[in-house]
């Protein structure tokens, strides 16, 4: 790592305040160009620790970001990133999200969520291992938000900022991954009744959401950690991010997985 621990802690506290106050900070990568990927993940871990220590949040899963080739090119990276899901980030099905005071510049993603039946320990985890370890998949929304002003992010900014994760909602229909071709399964995204994008599972790394979950297991495996049974894994957006404002209703329809909608208040 190229930043000292004190600086990393200060930046984690800055992001934590930005989250709690819904007030963005200037891009960290501009102020600290020395910040590397390792530093950024360390800051993300400290940011999470503050949420657990100060507010009693607990980890219930993980998210994978930057899974679209186009977004990877935009951020000049060749792999995804990850962040943490806590119980406080979970939005019950049917609830509205109040933007004022809780979010800065929210954007919605349509994804497929995995709930694991077994631990997944990399390295060497394949798509087949992910299939075997998955309890069920369900349609889900991830509402991303950047604590960095105007989403002016480089890869290290978003990693430090918990992969820009905000909140998530899981759909009511659970399906065994054995009953679905996750590579061709279609995703229709509607905003206020208008179709804004469609995609399919292969938008995830040009392969499948199974591939992104395998990547996550192997990324944690490289540091001796594993994905845990019961965790929720958000496998990455299958459509471009959609900015939302108060009054918007977003809806996804996923082939074989049904529908889910979310309202912003």
């Amino acid at each position: 790592m190229s930043m000292d621990a004190k600086r990393r802690q200060t930046l984690a506290e800055e992001l934590y305040r930005a989250l709690r106050d819904a007030a963005p900070v200037d891009p960290i990568s501009e102020r600290h160009p020395e910040m590397g990927i390792d530093d950024a993940y360390d800051i993300s871990g400290r940011f999470l620790q503050l949420r657990m220590d100060n507010d009693g949040e607990r980890v219930i899963g993980r998210k994978i970001g930057i899974t679209a080739k186009a977004v990877q090119r935009m951020l000049d990276v060749d792999q995804p990133d990850y962040g943490w899901l806590t119980d406080a980030m979970w939005v019950p099905h049917g609830a509205a999200i109040t933007i004022a005071g809780t979010m800065i510049a929210p954007r919605v993603e349509g994804e497929i969520a995995f709930v694991l039946a077994d631990d997944l320990a990399g390295p060497g985890v394949s798509e087949a291992d992910v299939l075997a370890a998955t309890d069920f998949v369900a349609p889900c929304f991830e509402i991303v938000d950047s604590r960095i002003r105007d989403w002016k992010i480089r890869i290290t900014d978003t990693i430090a900022d918990n992969a820009s994760c905000g909140m998530f909602m899981i759909g009511p229909r659970a399906v065994s991954p054995f009953d679905l071709d996750l590579s061709t399964c279609g995703m229709v995204f509607e905003l206020n009744g208008e179709i804004t994008a469609t995609g399919a599972g292969a938008a995830a790394l040009g392969a499948s959401p199974l591939t992104t979950v395998a990547w996550l297991a192997n990324a944690f495996g490289a540091r001796g950690e594993s994905l845990k049974a019961g965790e929720v894994i958000l496998s990455g957006s299958l459509v471009p991010l959609q900015p939302v404002k108060v009054g918007d209703v977003a809806r996804i329809h996923v082939g074989g997985l049904g529908d889910l909608s979310i309202r912003f208040a």
Binding site: M187, I195, T198, A200, A202, G255, G256
Partner: peptide
């Protein structure tokens, strides 16, 4: 058959170049 949600993956020379779903066609 769920023609709205039916997903489509287009590959060129072995690489995914586009994805979509049936609803892209007039809903």
């Amino acid at each position: 058959l769920d023609l709205k949600g039916l997903g489509v993956v287009l590959e060129k020379n072995g690489q995914v170049v586009a994805t979509g779903a049936g609803a892209a066609v007039l809903g």
